[in-house]
Design a protein around this nucleic acid. Structure first.
Lengths: 192, 192
DNA sequence: TCCCCATGCGATAGATTGCCGCACCAGTTT
DNA sequence: AAACTGGTGCGGCAATCTATCGCATGGGGA
């Protein structure tokens, strides 16, 4: 079942053939950003990183990259503005948005702003590359499962948590659940 | 708190001023389709309905409407193809996709195919109208969701259960949860 | 009739939650 | 500075809930 590696190899061939391999990674989470940057670099991209919108804008204005992987919500603004800016400077840029939890409204907004795809974390480097290089539009994708009930719940929790500025007590209060329970849920990773 | 009606009134004014109020509703669920069609008609649209892709295509080709509300998955094909067709015939058409349960990949696909928005059921007529008439791009609207996490989960389960024709085993399979557990959840009432 | 599948439900080990307490820390107020 | 306020992490424990199994029942099809 090692399809993943096959695809990776194919992608590397494609990447080497690109006229412009510049890529911008923007995420406020340093470990994740660096991990992703290194993973993409090892696949042949020429990577620059930014920790926030400010920094990313500078790069987008100065030397707009051919590719970008942007986190949607950061401390200092929305990733959406970076997509827009980048799209104006360089209409051929291929951008994928990344976000902690999936949210349809923001996915729609991201695509309308010019992103080619929208992935929700955790998304590994292979997923990102696949999205960046996807030749045409998304296949009408498989009938797609309804998502497990727990997953829905988890995403909702993440959303509210985000909305409460990562304040556990506040989130628990708004969600009307016990703080201890929330803490435990947040501690472990997303249900499938 | 009667904001809903205010918005509706504002929308009606806008609708009356439209040069072309033709609208196509496509959904395979007859009751839902008719309810939605009537609701939109009463808001001033000139509505045609289609129960499937075939029928919708005929309308799209013959007299492409200015607006459309399309269900994504039907028996005889994907709503995506209708969006594409309509977009070719009439690039200014404003289309919103509707679907039983939201899925990011399909939302992205729909927007790329030319839809202006993507709503997941249950979406009432006001939501649909708002999306159809939305002047600019969606703000990443702050939902400020007060819903409890368990409530979200419960509603999701109900929706899928509905979708599976009240078949417990089938629902459990699709939701990837134990039938016994589902049974117990369905037995008691909605969490607050 | 036999087979397949949906359903309802008892039992039970194992996982999760509700709830309390305690320690610690950072701002604010007194 | 000491007191106060609100957030965080975490141990522990009883009350619940979940995941499984098993079994009996009933309705179609082949």
């Amino acid at each position: 079942m090692r399809l993943g590696s096959l695809k990776t190899m194919a992608a590397e061939t494609l990447i080497d053939a690109l006229p412009d391999r510049s890529l911008l990674v923007m995420d406020d989470d340093a470990p994740l950003r660096n991990r992703l940057a290194r993973a993409l670099e090892s696949r042949g991209f020429s990577v620059k990183t930014a920790a926030g919108v400010e920094e990313a804008m500078t790069i987008a204005r100065g030397a707009p990259p051919a590719f970008a992987v942007l986190d949607l919500r950061l401390e200092d603004g929305s990733g959406l503005s970076v997509v827009e800016e980048l799209h104006v400077r360089r209409p051929d840029a291929r951008v994928v948005m990344l976000t902690g939890y999936g949210n349809i409204a923001t996915a729609v907004a991201a695509v309308k702003a010019g992103a080619v795809d929208y992935l929700s974390k955790p998304a590994d480097a292979d997923d990102v590359v696949k999205a960046l290089l996807a030749q045409s539009d998304h296949l009408p994708d498989p009938p797609s499962n309804p998502m497990s009930a727990d997953r829905i719940r988890w995403e909702h929790i993440q959303r509210v948590f985000e909305l409460c500025g990562h304040n556990v007590s506040e989130t628990a209060r708004r969600l009307n659940m016990h703080r201890r329970t929330l803490q435990r849920i947040l501690a472990k990773r997303a249900p499938r």
